[in-house]
Design a binder for these strands. Structure first.
Length: 300
DNA sequence: ATCATTGTTCTTACGACGAT
DNA sequence: ATCGTCGTAAGAACAATGAT
């Protein structure tokens, strides 16, 4: 148990630490110290009060400290508002200056890189759950942003809205989603959604894709596709890919399944499209030259 | 006006390789 | 073993353009 003198000293120490922290930027160690001190002072005072050991002078000191901190809190509150107003005005001004600068034909100003890779786990997860239609709405993007930044205290590693937009654009292109769309769905996103549904159904997927498959924009325009038939629980005669694309050859179906799996892997673990393509080339070359040798065909 | 796509540039990490 | 340099892949970001 602390003596009255020690309690008073802790109170003053507490006030000094808080003032100091407010005047400068606190690091984690300082923050932790203030937190511990707050607990210690609070517990000691309430204990002493409960046991009737709290002296009048300590009590008065405690009240004075609280009043000073209250006043300070009010002042800081006002200051913060002012700073926010100034920041907002400055941002507007800077934006307009930068716009003018860019429009005068100067070279592009690339933002300084903060990290080599983004905190993309939320975006990857969303992409994988919506492979049939990886186009998040504004609300979706805001939710992804909030989820990604929820536990990040360091400002410099927090995602920005535009980074989410760009990540989806780049990932659709790099993971092979766009080329798959063109190659197998004739550029039709509805067909792509159906194919995605069928492939995931074949693989015994969790059918989480139902969310986008029956998404709000689609639901508003009901169509007699394989997808809507499924939603109405009218199961087609065939299941999986043949139900959606009845006229494709087995070879094409196999190729589609392979490319789909590669696409999923790229999204899940990173793109690495160039290494992947290179590996494919090596494997293909090795395979073809091996079979040529088996047939006795002279190489080169 | 807003959002997606495409082509492209730029930054960073990393491996190979030679010099010490 | 440890550097410094160089080339390259991956991925983030930008600009122009098109679609709705």
């Amino acid at each position: 148990m602390l003596s009255q003198e020690e309690v008073c000293q802790k109170l003053l120490d507490f006030e000094f630490s808080v003032l100091n922290a407010l005047a400068t930027d606190v690091d984690d160690v300082q923050y932790e110290y203030i937190r511990e001190l707050t607990t210690l002072v609070g517990e000691t005072l309430s204990q002493q009060q409960a046991q009737g050991e709290l002296s009048l002078s300590t009590l008065q000191l405690g009240i004075r400290v609280r009043e000073r901190l209250d006043q300070l809190r009010y002042v800081l509150h006002e200051q913060r508002h002012q700073v926010q107003r100034i920041q907002s005005d400055t941002n507007l001004e800077l934006t307009s200056i930068l716009r003018r600068h860019i429009h005068t034909g100067s070279s592009p100003v690339y933002r300084e890189r903060r990290d080599t890779t983004l905190n993309a786990s939320f975006m990857r997860d969303w992409f994988l759950r919506n492979l049939g239609h990886p186009f998040p709405t504004r609300e979706d993007k805001q939710a992804i942003l909030a989820g990604s930044n929820a536990r990040i205290r360091d400002r410099t590693t927090r995602l920005r809205y535009n980074q989410v937009v760009l990540w989806f654009i780049n990932t659709r292109r790099r993971c092979g989603w766009t080329s798959f769309l063109r190659k197998y769905a004739n550029g039709n996103k509805d067909t792509m959604a159906d194919i995605a549904w069928a492939l995931q159904e074949e693989q015994g997927g969790t059918h989480e894709t139902r969310a986008w498959s029956a998404g709000p924009t689609k639901a508003a325009t009901p169509k007699t596709t394989a997808r809507s038939a499924k939603e109405a629980n009218i199961l087609p005669a065939k299941k999986g890919l043949p139900a959606v694309l009845p006229h494709i050859s087995e070879d094409t179906a196999v190729a589609m399944r392979t490319e789909w799996e590669q696409m999923v892997e790229r999204v899940r673990y990173g793109i690495k499209e160039r290494i992947g393509d290179w590996m494919d080339e090596v494997i293909r070359d090795t395979h073809s030259s091996a079979s040529e040798e088996r047939r006795g065909t002279p190489r080169k």
